[in-house]
Design a binder for these strands. Structure first.
Lengths: 160, 160
DNA sequence: TATTGTTATACTCTATAACTATA
DNA sequence: TATAGTTATAGAGTATAACAATA
């Protein structure tokens, strides 16, 4: 039995509340874990002036030169109208550029500029650092297990 | 080597995109899994006219009779101003009620009405059904492992 | 001086309808 | 007829500042 009482006095707010049922749900726990980790990612990306979605988009473009808007949308579950503003900001900052798509004049290929590639590489290192056990509280084996189970949940049994 | 081509024709959108780095991150996978599962929860709650947050609040009140607003906020990571409207709607629907708090005239205890208790119990059954393997693609052991690892991530090593 | 509950407000994120140009 | 990209807009969700009543 612990006598946790780091707080002075102990206001109403601090009294324990039973959230047992919610804590038994995968959705509840996955959401809390995602918010916690993404909060750390947010902080690490701040020096680069990137939000989490912007980093995701920049990373997909960097790793897939010539990818189209629709492909980015499909890969990241972003709706096309919501990607327009994101791409515009990244383009205005000189991080990406659009070029004519060979073979389909409706589409346009997306490419990172040299500056975009440089920023993405630095940001990727910063983001990867969040996976360390100091932040995740997991060792390498636990982390691998967790990711495999999460992929199974949202990709189905087909998840590798 | 697979030749996956269930789609007719194959528009640009369907071409595969490398998201390898993102898929190696706990935050990315936890977010996708949470969105997938919570999407199912959303559907199951629709017959009861409850959003996910509303169900969470109703559940905490049902399991903690007399709980205060601030305690609900602390338990569910909701900011006090954002809880006001939620409670007002639940109260107007006759699902909860506020009573004077014994010993602190600033606070008010929250209680479910009979109708609220009935609705919450039904909704809880519907939500619990989402945990089945048909939806989560996990067996009981995998599910237990996943939840334990997720709690470790957002609660730290102190997670039971 | 600090806490409870509240209003007003702003900002982000997500979602839908509809348009254009190409296929 | 369907797809790629875009505009405009509506709706959630989330955030801060500031207030009255009470501790």
């Amino acid at each position: 039995m612990r006598t946790v009482n780091a707080l002075p006095e102990r206001p109403l707010q601090a009294a324990p509340v039973d959230t047992g049922f919610l804590e038994s749900l995968i959705g509840y726990n996955a959401r809390r874990a995602a918010l916690a980790i993404i909060g750390h990612v947010l902080q690490r990306l701040q020096p680069y002036g990137l939000r989490v979605v912007e980093f995701s988009v920049l990373t997909v473009i960097a790793h897939n030169p010539g990818v189209t808007s629709r492909q980015v949308c499909a890969a990241l579950d972003i709706l096309p109208p919501n990607l327009v503003g994101l791409l515009r900001r990244l383009e205005q900052r000189g991080l990406i550029e659009k070029r004519a798509h060979p073979g389909d004049r409706r589409a346009q290929g997306l490419y990172v500029t040299d500056a975009g590639a440089h920023l993405q590489a630095q940001a990727q290192q910063a983001v990867a650092a969040v996976e360390c056990s100091d932040v995740t509280h997991l060792d390498a084996a636990e982390r691998a297990t967790l990711i495999a189970l999460l992929r199974k949940v949202y990709q189905g049994p087909a998840a590798a």
